[in-house]
């Protein structure tokens, strides 16, 4: 349920396992919401720190996503580029409650702004 703190964006099984869906934010950038093989959800600004690739379109493996443009690996939990690359994508707190995916309202506004 959407509250002052959390935005209810849908059922968790609407996101493919090892995949991602986006949330459009009016007046801002999209938020990418990921679901890992372990069943956890993470939300990040849908923009690679490198050349702004759409992370939602990358291959999800372990706790990271590979950007579709140049294969940078971005940590889903911190938004940090992994390995030799340097850079960070804003993250948005996300959780599953009763099968629904909730993302933090304030975090969404801050990341998408």
């Amino acid at each position: 349920m959407t509250t002052a703190e959390w935005l209810d964006i849908g059922w968790v099984d609407q996101i493919p396992v090892r995949g991602s869906r986006t949330v459009q934010v009016e007046g801002g950038d999209d938020i990418a919401v990921f679901r890992t093989a372990e069943g956890k959800v993470f939300a990040l600004l849908d923009r690679c720190p490198h050349k702004h690739g759409r992370l939602s379109q990358g291959i999800v493996h372990g706790g990271a996503v590979a950007c579709p443009l140049h294969n940078w690996r971005i940590s889903l939990s911190t938004g940090e580029a992994l390995g030799e690359d340097k850079g960070c994508t804003p993250t948005v707190p996300a959780k599953i409650d009763g099968g629904r995916v909730l993302i933090c309202r304030a975090g969404t506004l801050k990341a998408a702004a």
Partner: peptide, 12 residues
């Protein structure tokens, strides 16, 4: 399709 649309002044 996006999973949801969020209009900051409104709702999901």
């Amino acid at each position: 399709a996006p999973m949801a649309r969020f209009i900051p002044q409104g709702e999901i």
